[in-house]
C-alpha cells in the first residue's frame, strides 16, 4: 500500500514536470483579401540554413539569434513564401493566360528574413527572372506592435514590397 502511494506520487510529479505552462502558437502568411488565387507563377525560393526550420527567428542584441519555441510556422516557410510571391505576382502583373506554364521563372534567394527585439523586420536577398539580371533587395520595416503576430504581418508586407519591385521589372511580353 505504501509502495503504491509512493509510485502514484512519483508519476504525479513526473507528469507535473512534463506539463508546460504555455502552448505553442503556429503562424501562416496571410492571404490577400482579394479573391482566392486562381493562378500563380512558379517561384523558386531558397532559404538560408537558419530559416530551414519551423521556429520564427528573432535577432537580439549582439546578433544573438533566438529561435522561438512557442511561436512556429504552421507550414514550411519556403513553401509559404513561394506560394505567397507567386500568387501576389500573378495578380500584380495581371496574369491571365498562363499559370505555371508561362515559361517565366522567378528565383528568390533569401539571405535574411527575421524580426528583432527592436521591432525592425529585416528582409534581404537576391532575385532574378529566368536567371538573368540578378538584383538585390534589402527591405526593413518596423512592426506595428510588439509580438509575433505583428511580426508575421510585417513579414507579409515586406514580401508584398518585394513582389511590387519584381512586377516593375517584369518582362512586358509575358504580361498578357
Amino acid at each position: 500500500m505504501k509502495l503504491t502511494k509512493v509510485f502514484i506520487l512519483s508519476i504525479s510529479l513526473f507528469l507535473a514536470a512534463c506539463a508546460s505552462k504555455q502552448e505553442i502558437s503556429y503562424y501562416m502568411l496571410p492571404l490577400s483579401k482579394q479573391s482566392v488565387p486562381g493562378r500563380y507563377l512558379d517561384v523558386t525560393v531558397k532559404l538560408p540554413d537558419y530559416l530551414q526550420q519551423d521556429s520564427l527567428v528573432v535577432v537580439g542584441q549582439n546578433n544573438q539569434v533566438h529561435f522561438a519555441h512557442f511561436h512556429r510556422w504552421a507550414e514550411p516557410l519556403q513553401k509559404a513564401i513561394s506560394f505567397q510571391v507567386g500568387y501576389e505576382l500573378a495578380q500584380a502583373i495581371k496574369l491571365k493566360n498562363c499559370q505555371t506554364e508561362c515559361g517565366t521563372s522567378v528565383t528568390i534567394e533569401i539571405i535574411r528574413f527575421h524580426g528583432s527585439e527592436s521591432g525592425n523586420i529585416v528582409f534581404k536577398g537576391l532575385w532574378s527572372i529566368n536567371g538573368e539580371k540578378v538584383k538585390a533587395f534589402n527591405f526593413n520595416r518596423l512592426q506595428d506592435s510588439p509580438g509575433y503576430g505583428s511580426l508575421v504581418v510585417g513579414m507579409d508586407k515586406l514580401i508584398s514590397q518585394l513582389v511590387a519591385e519584381i512586377a516593375v521589372d517584369w518582362p512586358q511580353a509575358n504580361a498578357l
Partner: peptide, 17 residues
C-alpha cells in the same frame, strides 16, 4: 530528461521598441 527543461519565454519581437 525526468523533470523537463524549463522553457523560458520567447523573446518578444518589438518589445524593445
Amino acid at each position: 530528461l525526468i523533470f523537463g527543461a524549463p522553457k523560458p519565454q520567447d523573446v518578444q519581437p518589438g518589445a524593445a521598441k
